[in-house]
Amino acid sequence: MFSVKNLVKIYPTGQHALKGCSVDIDKAQIVSIFGPSGAGKSTFIRCINRLVEPTSGKVYLDGVEITGLKGKDLHEARRKMGMIFQEYNLIERLTVMENVLSGRLGYVGFLQAMFRRFPQDYVDEAFHLLERVGLEGYHNQRADALSGGQRQRVGIVRALIQHPKILLVDEPTSGLDPKTAMIIMQLIADLAKEKGIPAIVNIHDVALGQQYADRIIGLTEGEVVFDGPPSEVTAETLTQIYGEEDWSKTIRKVEDEEE
């Protein structure tokens, strides 16, 4: 249902961020991408929905070649991919409801969007999803009044209301405390299962990533160096991905500064 073939990204600065990554996902599973800062995780995920334009390689979703699309077709393809961000990226000055409904922007006209006239069934679904993530009654709050965990829940709802075929999740927990991080990961995993869609999750917290993933992909210097189930991840694998470190002592928190 989803496949990435030989993805390459070279930035204008000459930085070789991706050197030919290939990944196939054929069922609804949580795929955690491990890798040190600067390994190209963020670039990889942004090349999929082409927020970053890949230099070469192909991305397919449900048989459609995303990398070949332009303009309107690209916008339509993006609607099928829900994205959740590291810094939540909510529109700070808008309310929770407006942020959620912005996930349906692709389906309403410009004037409807401008005057906030969204169809009632979108609004119903938004209320339903907000309730599902535990944000009942928050719809008229402004985004900048929420806590980190609450903001990320809004971010999740915004992605889900797109009715995505896949979730692209970029470091969803890096700004959160350990407990909230767990709750958020659990929520993402549960919802992906509920909707029956795969999720690609960039995550720097090895333990957390392992706990919720069905599959781990190791990315180092723009190359896939590991691809397998969490049970196969050993100290050697982690050394291969992150470099030398005493991994036996790695318990639940490996704080590193994100790029």
Binding site: R116, D124, F127, H139
Partner: peptide, 9 residues
């Protein structure tokens, strides 16, 4: 069946 009405203002 719940009918939530949402208005920006």
């Amino acid at each position: 069946v719940q009918k939530h009405i949402w208005k920006r203002f």
